[in-house]
Amino acid sequence: MGRRGHHHLGHRHRRHHDLRSQQEPGDQGTLITRGAQHGRPERWRSDRGALSLEMVVLLPLALSLLFLAVQGAVYYQSRTVALASAQEGARGAAGYEQTDEHGRSAALDFAARAGGDGLLESPDVEVTRDRGNGTVTVRVTGTTMSIIPGWDPQVSQSSTRAIEEFTRVEDFEGSGIDRTERPSW
Rank of each mutant, 00 (worst) to 15 (best):
Q77Y: 04
G26S: 03
P153C: 01
S159Q: 09
T128R: 14
W151T: 12
V125N: 08
A84R: 02
L51T: 13
G29A: 12
D47T: 14
V140Q: 06
G174T: 11
S64N: 04
Q22T: 11
R131G: 09
P153W: 00
D178W: 03
G5D: 11
H6G: 11
Y76F: 11
I148S: 05
H102T: 00
L31F: 06
G142W: 00
E24G: 07
R161K: 12
E88I: 10
I163K: 00
R113S: 11
G150L: 12
P25E: 11
L65Q: 05
H17N: 13
E181C: 03
T160C: 04
V70H: 02
T144L: 00
M1L: 13
L9F: 14
T137N: 03
G150I: 08
D27N: 15
E97C: 00
G2H: 10
W44C: 13
A50E: 01
A111I: 10
A107M: 07
R129D: 09
F172Q: 14
L59C: 10
T144H: 00
I147G: 05
G49L: 08
E88R: 15
Q77K: 08
H17V: 13
E24A: 15
D178C: 02
W151M: 12
R104M: 08
G176V: 07
Q28H: 08
G92M: 02
G176W: 05
Q23F: 00
G2L: 09
I148Q: 05
E181A: 15
R129G: 07
G95V: 02
P123G: 01
Q154W: 08
G39V: 04
S156N: 06
G92I: 05
L51S: 06
R43F: 07
R139V: 11
D47L: 11
A114S: 13
E165I: 07
G72V: 08
M1A: 15
G115M: 00
G49A: 05
G72Y: 02
I177S: 05
V81Q: 04
A82T: 09
G115T: 03
L119G: 03
L9C: 05
G2D: 14
A111W: 03
T135P: 01
G29Q: 09
E121C: 02
I177D: 09
A106Y: 00
L58M: 15
R40E: 12
T143Y: 02
R168T: 15
G116N: 05
H102P: 02
A93C: 03
F67N: 06
H7W: 08
V57Q: 09
V127G: 03
H17E: 13
P153D: 04
T167I: 14
S46D: 15
G150W: 13
D152T: 14
D130F: 02
I177M: 10
V70T: 13
R113I: 11
G103H: 04
S105H: 01
F166W: 09
G2Q: 13
V74M: 03
S175I: 07
P123S: 04
D18I: 06
R129P: 06
A93W: 01
L63A: 13
T137D: 06
L83R: 12
A112D: 12
F166I: 07
V56T: 10
Q98S: 14
S156C: 08
E88F: 03
A36W: 07
V57S: 08
R4H: 14
D18H: 11
A84C: 02
H102E: 05
